[in-house]
C-alpha cells in the first residue's frame, strides 16, 4: 500500500457510531510531542496565529526602546522623590538665627543671650555659633580681610531641631526677638515650600511622561494588532469558519502580545538599568561637587517600580491589542 492511498477503506474507528468518547489514549508519539521551534511554552502547541511580522522582532525592538524610555521616566520620578525628601528633611531639621547689631559688642551680647534661649528650648538638639569675626572670615573672598573691623557683620547661630521644636516656633521666635530687633529666626520655610512644590512638579512631569510613553506603546500595539489581522486575514477567516469565537482569536493575539511585551520590556528595562548605572557612576565620580546632585541608589524604592514596568507595559500592550482585535472583528459577518 502506498502513501497516496488510504491505509484502510473502512470507516475510521474515530468516526464510527459506536466510537468510544473522545480521549481514549495518552502516550503520543515522540514526533508529535517533541518541542519544536515556535511552539508556545505554556501548552507545547504551536500558536494558532502566525507571527506574520506584526509581533516579530521589529515589534520587540520598538517595545524595548519604549520600555527603556518608560523605565528612565520612572527612575526620574523616584530620583526626584528621594532627592526632594532628602533636601526637605535637611531643611526641616535646621534653622538659623541671625544676629545683627550696631556694634561688635551688641552683636556678641545678643549672641550669648540667643544661645541661652536656644539651650533652654525643648527639641533643639545642636547649636553651632558663627561669631561676627567668623562670619567675616566667610566673606573674605568678597570683602577682603578684617571686614569686621569696619562693618558690623552679623553673627549666625546654626541649630538643628527635632520636629517637635517646630510646633512651638512662634514662641521661640517671640523669645528671640525679645532679645533685640536684630535677632531674627529663619526657619527655611520659604525654601522648603518652594522645594516641595518644585519636586512635585518634577514628579508630575516624570509620571506624565511615563503615561505618555505607555500610551504610545498601546497605540503601537493597536496598529500592530490591526496589521497582524490584515496580514493573517485568511487565517482569521478560516478560524471563524471552523468555529472560533472573536474572544478565542483575541486571546491568541493577546497571548502573543504578552510574550512580545514581556520580552521587549525586559530588554528595555535592562537597557535602562545599564544607562542609569553608568549615570550614577558618573555622578559619584564628581565627588564633593555632586553634593547637591541627587544620587541614584539602587535600592528597593527604585528596583520595585522598575521591575513592575515590564509587566505593566506587556499588560497595557496586550489589552490594547485585544480590544483592537475585538473591535476589528466585530465589523465582519
Amino acid at each position: 500500500m502506498t502513501q497516496t492511498e488510504f491505509a484502510d477503506q473502512t470507516t475510521p474507528q474515530t468516526l464510527r457510531a459506536d466510537a468510544a468518547p473522545l480521549g481514549r489514549a495518552p502516550n503520543p508519539p515522540a514526533a508529535i510531542n517533541s518541542a519544536r521551534k515556535g511552539r508556545a511554552w505554556w501548552s507545547g502547541q504551536t500558536p494558532i496565529l502566525p507571527a506574520a511580522g506584526a509581533t516579530g522582532a521589529p515589534m520587540t525592538i520598538v517595545i524595548a526602546i519604549i520600555s527603556a524610555l518608560a523605565a528612565l521616566s520612572l527612575a526620574a520620578f523616584v530620583l526626584i522623590a528621594s532627592a526632594s525628601a532628602k533636601w526637605t528633611s535637611d531643611l526641616a531639621a535646621s534653622m538659623t538665627v541671625q544676629i545683627k547689631g550696631a556694634s561688635q559688642e551688641e552683636i556678641a551680647a545678643n549672641t550669648t543671650a540667643a544661645v541661652n534661649v536656644l539651650e533652654t528650648t525643648a527639641g533643639v538638639t545642636e547649636i553651632s555659633v558663627k561669631s561676627s569675626s567668623q562670619a567675616a572670615k566667610l566673606l573674605e573672598p568678597w570683602l577682603g580681610a578684617n571686614a569686621d573691623s569696619y562693618l558690623s557683620v552679623p553673627a549666625l547661630i546654626e541649630m538643628r531641631a527635632a520636629p517637635s521644636a517646630r510646633e512651638n516656633l512662634a514662641a521661640l521666635r517671640t523669645r528671640l526677638s525679645a532679645i533685640g530687633d536684630g535677632v531674627v529666626l529663619d526657619d527655611h520655610g520659604g525654601w522648603n515650600t518652594s522645594l516641595i512644590r518644585a519636586s512635585r512638579t518634577g514628579q508630575l512631569l516624570a509620571f506624565t511622561i511615563f503615561l505618555l510613553i505607555t500610551g504610545a506603546a498601546c497605540t503601537i500595539a493597536a496598529f500592530a494588532a490591526r496589521a497582524g489581522l490584515a496580514a493573517n486575514a485568511d487565517v482569521v477567516s478560516l478560524l471563524h469558519l471552523v468555529g472560533a469565537t472573536d474572544e478565542f482569536i483575541a486571546n491568541e493575539v493577546q497571548r502573543r502580545f504578552v510574550l512580545v511585551g514581556l520580552k521587549g520590556a525586559g530588554l528595555g528595562l535592562a537597557l535602562a538599568l545599564v544607562m542609569l548605572f553608568l549615570a550614577s557612576l558618573s555622578a559619584r565620580s564628581y565627588g564633593a561637587g555632586a553634593y547637591f546632585l541627587p544620587v541614584l541608589d539602587f535600592d528597593m524604592s527604585l528596583i520595585a517600580p522598575m521591575a513592575m514596568m515590564p509587566v505593566a507595559i506587556s499588560i497595557a500592550t496586550a489589552m490594547s491589542a485585544r480590544f483592537t482585535v475585538l473591535r476589528t472583528l466585530r465589523l465582519k459577518i
Partner: peptide, 23 residues
C-alpha cells in the same frame, strides 16, 4: 478540537487515527 477547547489528551489519538486512515 483546539478551537472547541478540547484538551490535547482527548483528541490526540483521534487525530492520529484519521491521519493514518487517509494514508
Amino acid at each position: 478540537m483546539r478551537i472547541a477547547g478540547v484538551g490535547q489528551n482527548q483528541y490526540r489519538e483521534d487525530v492520529r487515527e484519521l491521519l493514518n486512515w487517509v494514508g
